[in-house]
């Protein structure tokens, strides 16, 4: 398997098949004398902004922390050991509603979308 080709930018679903986002970043651990090890995957706007450069990354981190509080000051990381299946989508053994990843969608539902009749 090749990480960039087969993992990065792929669709991510949680254990209930809810679409969480895409793999926006990969965290590798460098080890002395041994090949690097994939430690985690990153999801969310900060990880994405970092791919455009360090500056957009820093700005996005500030914006995210302002809007979402301390829980959103860093990219959302999920340990590589939670990867259950890599096929059409990448399935993570987590329940997205117990993480902060979709907080903004929950906020949108509770404060705006849910208030419009027929939602």
């Amino acid at each position: 398997m090749r990480m960039i080709r087969d993992v990065l930018d792929k669709q991510v679903v949680d254990r209930n098949q809810v679409k969480i986002g895409k793999i926006d970043g990969i965290v590798a651990q460098l080890r002395r004398g041994r090949p690097p090890r994939v430690a985690a995957v990153e999801i969310g706007s900060i990880a994405l902004a970092r791919r455009l450069g360090p500056l957009p990354g820093r700005w996005m981190a500030i914006v995210a922390a302002k809007l979402g509080g301390e829980r959103h000051a860093k990219p959302h990381r999920v340990a590589w050991s939670k990867v259950r299946d890599i096929g059409l989508d990448i399935e993570l053994d987590i329940d997205v509603h117990k993480t902060a990843i979709c907080d903004w969608q929950d906020w949108l539902r509770d404060h705006i979308v849910g208030k419009i009749p027929g939602a």
Partner: peptide, 10 residues
């Protein structure tokens, strides 16, 4: 339903 994909609906 829009409440199940609020980002999309928005």
């Amino acid at each position: 339903k829009p409440r199940d994909d609020p980002g999309f609906a928005m």
